[in-house]
Computed example of a mutant assay.
Amino acid sequence: MFIQPWDAALDDAEWQSWIADGHDFGQLCVNGPPGRAPVVVPTHFTTDAGRLLIHLARPNPVWEAIEHDPNVTFTVVGDYAFIPGPWRAKPGSPPTDGVPTSYYAAVQFTCHARIVDEPEAKAQLLRRQMAHFQPDGDHAPIDVHQPPYGRMLSGIRGLELDVVDVRAKFKYDDHKPVEHRGAVAAHLVERGQGLDAPAARRQSSRLDRVGPWKP
């Protein structure tokens, strides 16, 4: 992922709070065995003390790829929007001279994957995930000796992804003048399609922190 200086995360807290704010679905990318394409798996995940926790069905083809190469990338993308050319035209120039772009937030984790197969270890991984996704505890006990989870554990495998490196990108035209960025955020709110609203909030948040861009 190419990151211009003005697109970089302002600090670790920015990408960490973005992930914590409901961005818990991404894609696990694993090198395939020689002669095969990489394996890419969309999935929910949770974070846990420098690790990402995942579970997937045992028949998933990703396991063979991980056993071949446990060095993986997990990527999360959100708050994206297409920005049409007229919104980016320079003052005094024809609107059609504006060049369109994409706004988005992306966090890529480089990780070392460890497969979890022992039943109690898988149950513990699921408990951690459920504490995140169903914090009210409105589910049956996740116990290796009790239904429904006990009999289902054999059908899944767990993954602990030890995070080696993190690269974060927040692409919102931060190198453009303050007035330009404010106007685009207003256009996003007015258009109100797809992820326009969160993209506008992200741009406004960075505008408040960055102000005029200084190399």
Rank of each mutant, 00 (worst) to 15 (best):
residue 18 W to R: 06
residue 13 A to L: 13
residue 16 Q to D: 11
residue 36 R to S: 15
residue 40 V to I: 14
residue 23 H to K: 13
residue 19 I to R: 07
residue 14 E to K: 06
residue 21 D to C: 03
residue 48 D to C: 07
residue 49 A to F: 06
residue 26 G to V: 09
residue 54 I to A: 01
residue 41 V to D: 00
residue 59 P to T: 11
residue 55 H to E: 05
residue 56 L to Q: 05
residue 59 P to W: 13
residue 25 F to V: 03
residue 12 D to R: 06
residue 44 H to E: 10
residue 20 A to T: 11
residue 13 A to S: 15
residue 35 G to H: 09
residue 46 T to W: 01
residue 25 F to W: 09
residue 10 L to H: 14
residue 36 R to V: 13
residue 33 P to Y: 08
residue 40 V to M: 05
residue 52 L to T: 02
residue 34 P to L: 04
residue 30 V to Y: 00
residue 40 V to R: 02
residue 21 D to E: 11
residue 45 F to H: 03
residue 12 D to H: 07
residue 58 R to E: 12
residue 11 D to G: 14
residue 25 F to H: 03
residue 50 G to H: 02
residue 55 H to N: 10
residue 41 V to T: 15
residue 35 G to E: 12
residue 49 A to R: 14
residue 38 P to A: 04
residue 15 W to A: 02
residue 16 Q to N: 12
residue 12 D to Q: 08
residue 50 G to P: 05
residue 39 V to R: 08
residue 17 S to L: 07
residue 12 D to S: 09
residue 55 H to V: 09
residue 17 S to G: 04
residue 27 Q to L: 12
residue 58 R to T: 07
residue 22 G to W: 12
residue 21 D to S: 11
residue 23 H to S: 05
residue 36 R to T: 15
residue 19 I to F: 08
residue 33 P to E: 15
residue 27 Q to Y: 07
residue 33 P to S: 12
residue 31 N to W: 01
residue 35 G to A: 12
residue 53 L to W: 05
residue 15 W to R: 03
residue 22 G to I: 08
residue 26 G to Y: 10
residue 27 Q to W: 08
residue 56 L to D: 01
residue 55 H to W: 05
residue 17 S to I: 02
residue 29 C to Q: 10
residue 22 G to F: 11
residue 12 D to L: 05
residue 49 A to M: 07
residue 23 H to F: 06
residue 21 D to Y: 05
residue 56 L to R: 02
residue 12 D to C: 04
residue 18 W to A: 00
residue 45 F to K: 01
residue 38 P to M: 00
residue 11 D to I: 08
residue 42 P to S: 08
residue 26 G to A: 06
residue 18 W to V: 01
residue 49 A to G: 11
residue 19 I to K: 06
residue 35 G to K: 08
residue 41 V to N: 01
residue 49 A to N: 15
residue 33 P to W: 07
residue 27 Q to M: 13
residue 38 P to E: 01
residue 24 D to T: 15
residue 39 V to W: 04
residue 27 Q to P: 00
residue 40 V to K: 00
residue 29 C to G: 04
residue 24 D to H: 15
residue 11 D to M: 09
residue 22 G to C: 06
residue 39 V to L: 09
residue 20 A to L: 11
residue 26 G to I: 08
residue 59 P to R: 12
residue 30 V to E: 00
residue 47 T to Q: 13
residue 51 R to S: 14
residue 31 N to A: 15
residue 13 A to M: 10
residue 21 D to L: 04
residue 23 H to I: 02
residue 27 Q to G: 00
residue 40 V to L: 10
residue 21 D to A: 14
residue 36 R to I: 09
residue 28 L to P: 03
residue 45 F to Q: 00
residue 16 Q to L: 12
